Simulated assay, not measured.
Amino acid sequence: MAKVKEEKTNVMRVLDQKKIPYTPHAYPHGDGEAPDGVTVARSLGQDPERVFKTLVTRGASGGYYVFDIPVTDTLDLKKAAKAVGEKSIAMLHSRELLPLTGYVHGGCSPIGMKKQFPTVFHETAEILDTIMVSAGKIGFQVELSPADLIELVGGTTADVTV
């Protein structure tokens, strides 16, 4: 039986390069649309509060912002705007995601975007030993220390959910 070569995503290569410890996870998925975050968490046997989704927004000033929140939560646009000093923010349209970040909807990660944007993690990240975020490709997640992740992307934390 041939040995299956572990697939490395760009996110994993960035973490390896920066010598940040992580645990890769893969989950089953169909062609096309990515499963929702709760389905991903369940398929990996994880508490959905530890699995974070990456959301990209545009502020009233035209700047872009990244928010990482638990998959069960909803981003509060008013709290999010306040957290980044914007008058208002809006979710980025899916079709704009790939050209801006290099990632597709359902595989967007705060690590390794084409350009690093201001990134805010939900405040619960600070109290968890590890969190999971997309590894930059549908079907893959990485589990790592939130402190390492926040430091890597120059992120902050705030209460940004409903």
Score class of each variant (00 low, 15 high):
94 S>N: 12
29 H>K: 13
47 D>F: 07
48 P>E: 02
50 R>G: 07
122 H>A: 11
29 H>Q: 09
84 V>F: 05
70 P>C: 10
50 R>W: 00
55 L>F: 02
66 V>S: 04
43 S>K: 13
76 D>I: 00
88 S>R: 13
27 Y>W: 05
109 S>F: 14
94 S>V: 14
56 V>P: 04
68 D>P: 00
91 M>H: 09
112 G>K: 14
102 G>A: 08
100 L>A: 03
58 R>W: 01
33 E>Y: 05
46 Q>K: 15
58 R>K: 15
43 S>F: 05
79 K>W: 06
118 P>D: 11
66 V>L: 03
74 T>E: 13
95 R>H: 11
60 A>M: 08
116 Q>Y: 02
102 G>N: 10
122 H>P: 00
115 K>F: 10
126 E>N: 06
103 Y>W: 09
53 K>D: 03
101 T>F: 10
90 A>W: 06
86 E>M: 07
61 S>R: 06
62 G>T: 09
123 E>I: 14
43 S>R: 11
72 T>K: 15
88 S>G: 08
81 A>E: 10
108 C>Q: 14
127 I>S: 02
86 E>I: 03
55 L>A: 03
34 A>P: 02
108 C>D: 05
89 I>R: 11
40 V>Q: 07
126 E>F: 00
51 V>Y: 06
119 T>Y: 04
124 T>N: 12
52 F>T: 12
80 A>I: 04
58 R>H: 05
32 G>C: 03
85 G>Y: 04
64 Y>I: 05
91 M>W: 02
90 A>V: 08
56 V>C: 05
82 K>E: 14
113 M>Y: 07
60 A>I: 09
121 F>S: 03
31 D>G: 14
124 T>F: 01
73 D>K: 15
106 G>L: 13
109 S>I: 12
109 S>T: 12
77 L>P: 00
76 D>E: 02
56 V>R: 05
64 Y>K: 09
76 D>C: 01
72 T>N: 07
38 V>K: 08
66 V>Q: 02
103 Y>N: 09
107 G>Q: 11
69 I>C: 06
107 G>T: 08
98 L>P: 00
69 I>Q: 07
78 K>W: 11
62 G>S: 10
55 L>R: 01
120 V>M: 09
110 P>A: 03
93 H>E: 11
60 A>Y: 05
28 P>A: 13
123 E>T: 11
48 P>V: 01
120 V>N: 01
92 L>W: 04
28 P>H: 11
91 M>E: 00
121 F>V: 03
68 D>N: 14
33 E>D: 08
83 A>M: 04
88 S>V: 06
31 D>R: 15
25 H>W: 15
44 L>A: 05
72 T>I: 14
53 K>Y: 10
116 Q>S: 10
84 V>A: 06
78 K>P: 04
83 A>D: 01
86 E>F: 06
111 I>Y: 12
42 R>S: 07
77 L>A: 12
40 V>P: 00
123 E>W: 05
26 A>E: 14
28 P>T: 09
58 R>Y: 01
84 V>Q: 09
71 V>P: 00
39 T>Q: 14
25 H>S: 12
50 R>F: 01
56 V>H: 04
30 G>A: 08
98 L>W: 12
35 P>D: 09
91 M>D: 00
112 G>Y: 10
78 K>E: 14
55 L>K: 02
71 V>C: 14
121 F>Q: 03
124 T>D: 15
98 L>M: 14
103 Y>G: 07
37 G>S: 08
80 A>Y: 04
